[in-house]
Amino acid sequence: MPCMFQNVCKYVRKTREFAETVPNSHVTFVSNNAYENTPESLGECFERNAEGMLKNMAIHELALLVSFYDVSVENIESVTADKDFSSMQTLSGPSGKEFTDFDKIKFTIKTKTGKEVSVAADRCGGTDSYATVTDSNGEEVFRYYMPDDEDKATVKELQAQYPTAMPYFFTQDPDYVTVKERVAKFTATGEEAEGLATIGIAVETLRVAEYLTPLLMEQLK
């Protein structure tokens, strides 16, 4: 569950800064959750998050694309699913109702303004999320994990304190603290809460998610 908070996140900031130093670089944002790869676990996940992966787990990455890569419904030239990586299933949730969703998805968006960026999301990919930069030859030249080494000690403490919480909550704890402080400061003083997604970005991100979902599902049939 990488950060929805734009440049508040170290991994977003550092990845974008590095990509700017590499000519014709390509960025991929990778989001992982730690659900068990079983029909029971994923079926419960699909039902509880019935809005679908792109409006749930991958919404944070889409917000980054809207914010930094000119992605909007009107500006998308093409979207291509990575069929070797991606998987879509129809599973029964605890209620017995069936839900069709991606358990993992990877896709590349090209915009009409010439930008290209990729997103990957895996419900059963583990607890660490990351971003990569590849060069013009497709070779990976940079990878930054969330949490990084600095944050892992905090994650360990929170896991001991809240053993029943989802692991990905812990990796974002420092970012949530920063966001709450900036929003509270804005409420108290009127100082702009820099680095946070606006309502306009949120609306466009939801539009993009709704636009992409049927297109990607059709490609994976």
Rank of each mutant, 00 (worst) to 15 (best):
M1I: 10
F5Y: 12
Q6Y: 13
C9Y: 03
R16P: 02
E17P: 00
E17A: 12
E17T: 10
A19Q: 02
N24T: 03
T28Y: 03
T28V: 11
T28C: 11
F29L: 11
N32V: 13
N33T: 13
T38D: 04
P39C: 05
S41C: 10
G43C: 10
E44C: 04
C45Y: 15
F46P: 09
E47V: 05
E47C: 04
G52S: 09
M53P: 04
K55A: 13
M57W: 11
M57I: 10
M57Y: 12
A58D: 07
E61K: 07
L65H: 07
L65I: 06
Y69K: 07
D70L: 02
D70S: 14
S72A: 03
T80N: 10
T80S: 07
D84K: 14
S86W: 01
S87M: 14
S92Y: 04
G93M: 07
K97M: 11
E98T: 12
T100N: 11
D101M: 05
F102L: 08
K106G: 15
T108C: 12
T111R: 02
G114V: 02
K115E: 11
V117N: 04
V117W: 04
S118E: 01
S118P: 01
V119G: 02
D122G: 05
D122A: 05
Y130S: 01
D135A: 11
D135M: 10
S136L: 08
N137H: 00
V141E: 02
F142V: 13
F142E: 03
Y144G: 05
Y145C: 05
P147R: 03
D151Q: 13
D151M: 15
T154W: 05
T154D: 04
V155Q: 10
K156L: 15
Q159P: 13
Q159K: 15
Q161H: 11
M166Y: 12
Y176T: 01
T178R: 11
K185T: 07
A188C: 00
A188R: 01
T189R: 00
G190A: 03
E191R: 09
E191A: 11
E192R: 15
E192K: 14
E194R: 10
A197K: 06
G200E: 11
I201P: 00
T205I: 00
V208T: 01
V208Q: 00
E210F: 03
L216S: 14
L216P: 14
K221V: 06
K221R: 12
